[in-house]
Design a protein around this nucleic acid. Sequence first.
DNA 1: CGAAAATTTGACATGACTCAACTGGAGTGG
DNA 2: CCACTCCAGTTGAGTCATGTCAAATTTTCG
Lengths: 197, 197
Amino acid sequence: MQQGIQLILDNISKIVSLTKEEQDLFVSKLQYLEYKKKEFFLHEGQFSNELNFIIEGCVLVFYTDHTGFSHLIQFAIEDWWVGDIASSTHNIPTQLNIQAVEKTKVLRISKEDLEYLFEAIPKLERFFRILLQKRVANLQQRIISSLSKTATERFLEFRAQYGFLENRITQLQIASFLGVTPEFLSMIRRKLNSTNK
Amino acid sequence: MQQGIQLILDNISKIVSLTKEEQDLFVSKLQYLEYKKKEFFLHEGQFSNELNFIIEGCVLVFYTDHTGFSHLIQFAIEDWWVGDIASSTHNIPTQLNIQAVEKTKVLRISKEDLEYLFEAIPKLERFFRILLQKRVANLQQRIISSLSKTATERFLEFRAQYGFLENRITQLQIASFLGVTPEFLSMIRRKLNSTNK
DNA sequence: CGAAAATTTGACATGACTCAACTGGAGTGG
DNA sequence: CCACTCCAGTTGAGTCATGTCAAATTTTCG
């Protein structure tokens, strides 16, 4: 866990700088947790009241539609933040599932503690404001891609941006992220190999 | 303009409450602007350093791809905030265009002033943090729809959520928002009418 | 090693796009 | 107030991208 604390403080200090006291206060609110492979952080229908910082491992955030198909909204690996903002902002049960795909270690902070910390340390609120701005930019980019690009182009974009994930998650999950069937993704890969290899 | 000031203060007070002095300071940084129908707030390639609050009118935010097609990312009407977060967060030229579709009145605040205000009035930073959370929730929902729904379903969802816009913007723009061709949207509408009327 | 899951393949079906032609307002200028 | 143009919207035929289903193959992992 100790190295996790260092990781999270470094993560924050890339954007705002906290004093020693502020860091200690912040750290005092963190809870350390481990999840086994395939274990769930959050199931749809629950209320989400936490924010998680991944120290080690990898998690998927996905939505299951009425026909039972899963759609991958987001993934997160070490040094990333993950939570269901919609559920905790609006106080509604979540539509999302968050699941570990590997053994995963996280630091968790509750919504109440976070609100308390925002009062006590305004710089922390700034940190999350900036994090959210980046997330908005990222989601917007994804919408642009889904509106203007073909599946093959989206796959190449995925590789360029998240290539380091290609052997940590399955083709099925990549397909679900891109919004295509696994069969079709398989065909895309075959074509790319024969053309480009 | 006077009624615009009231509108923006009311908009903020739904989430945080400012003192009279804070309100005055905030208001002192606002710039009032009017745009004619079809006029641009922002052209792709420019740097975006402002945030706009619409007092009256309607604007579209769109992306133009390499083949010259436009894709509608977002629209905004009175009582909404609009700007290019990606460009101003990362200090990069924008990929987006923002254009008035009607005569539009806005209150604008520069990035510098906003940063100054965040220091002076932490509650204001909270306000924008919460606004961003809502935006993230909204964008995420749109991604869920684009991954899991058919064009017809997305059109019905658009109507349910943004029906009040249906006669302020064109079919072409709606098609571009949904990510389909105007021809195909026309067919969807015809089918819905014959089935459901 | 063997079972279950992931990936691939191929035949066929369909949602959505392209292109070209047509229709019907909404300006605009004379 | 008419004639003209222009652009949004519609239609239809043909095509392409992507999905469905079922089966074969490979990989993973207990």
